[in-house]
């Protein structure tokens, strides 16, 4: 059995938290540039210009791209043949996250749901753990902001509603959310599974690069179709109108009960911040 020291995990997580929050992905930047070429209205162009300047400034100054540096969400694939030495894996992830948020001057946004008292160190991290064959360890980190998370929804559709019902729900959700989640948004969809699995799939789908193509051509076509329809809503950057409402639609499917069609829509703001590391 392979062994990995917890300190390696702590260090890697600390670095990921800081990098994801201060360096905009080149795939997102490219989409801003595409939008700037496409948009004609002064407001839409000005917003996209500011977002590009913001990304440059964050890179230079190491200030976070957005003050909402999110709750820290991790998707972890742990090989069955790997043992973490010198501490638990989840604690190591939390320790690395706390250090990253402290050293990177990132905002601590975690609080008690009712008293609203801040936990003070952004803990606990939300850790989704999956056991996989082999002896590797893959950790993906996402800084998920509250504004876009608040606009996300889970619903249980009737099977008869099918793809058309899924599209109608998503279009309505994006239209109702309007300017609130900081468009242009990215949409992660979880289709199928159970009541709790669908949103997990939706969130994990947001880890994909914006410029990737789903390996299943049928799903890739659905993603492209929905993206085009969402962009026809005309909401535009920050809701001021325009052609750039959505930068990408990423869909994950799972088999579901014969009675159900679970659907989760995880809305991601344009400040899509995620990183991953293989240890």
């Amino acid at each position: 059995m392979r062994e990995l020291d917890a300190s390696v995990v702590i260090k890697a997580v600390e670095a990921m938290c800081i990098k994801a929050n201060t360096e905009l992905g080149d795939d997102v930047r490219k989409k801003f540039e595409d939008g700037l070429r496409l948009e004609t209205s002064a407001a839409a162009r000005e917003i996209l210009r500011q977002l590009l300047e913001n990304a440059d400034l964050a890179m230079q100054t190491k200030l976070p791209l957005c003050q909402d540096t999110g709750l820290a969400v991790f998707f972890v694939e742990l090989g069955e043949g790997l043992r973490i030495r010198g501490g638990g894996l989840v604690e190591a992830i939390n320790q690395g996250m706390r250090q990253g948020y402290e050293k990177g001057y990132l905002r601590k946004s975690s609080c008690d749901p009712l008293s609203r008292k801040n936990t003070g160190d952004n803990s606990p991290a939300v850790v989704h753990l999956e056991l996989v064959p082999g002896d590797g360890l893959k950790i993906a980190f996402m800084a998920k902001g509250g504004g876009s998370e608040n606009m996300s929804r889970v619903t249980m559709l009737a099977p008869a509603q099918g793809w058309e019902g899924i599209k109608a729900f998503v279009l309505r959700r994006v239209a109702e959310a309007g300017p609130n989640p900081c468009p242009p948004v990215i949409l992660g969809l979880g289709v199928g599974g159970t009541f709790e699995l669908a949103p997990k799939l939706a969130k994990k789908a947001l880890l994909r690069r914006l410029d990737d193509t789903h390996p299943d051509p049928k799903v890739a076509a659905m993603e492209a179709e929905l993206l085009e329809e969402v962009n026809r809503l005309g909401i535009g950057p920050m809701g001021m109108g325009g052609l750039t409402t959505c930068l990408g639609v990423k869909i994950a499917f799972a088999p579901c009960h014969i009675a159900s069609l679970p659907l989760a829509v995880n809305v991601q703001c344009h400040s899509s911040r995620h990183e991953e590391v293989v240890l």
Binding site: I47, Q50, L51, E53, N54, L57, A58, T61, L63, P64, L65, C66, Q67, D68, G147, P179, C182, M238, M240, C269, H270, S271
Partner: peptide
Amino acid sequence: FGATGGAGAL
């Protein structure tokens, strides 16, 4: 007034 969301560094 609206300020640009996600442009916190700027």
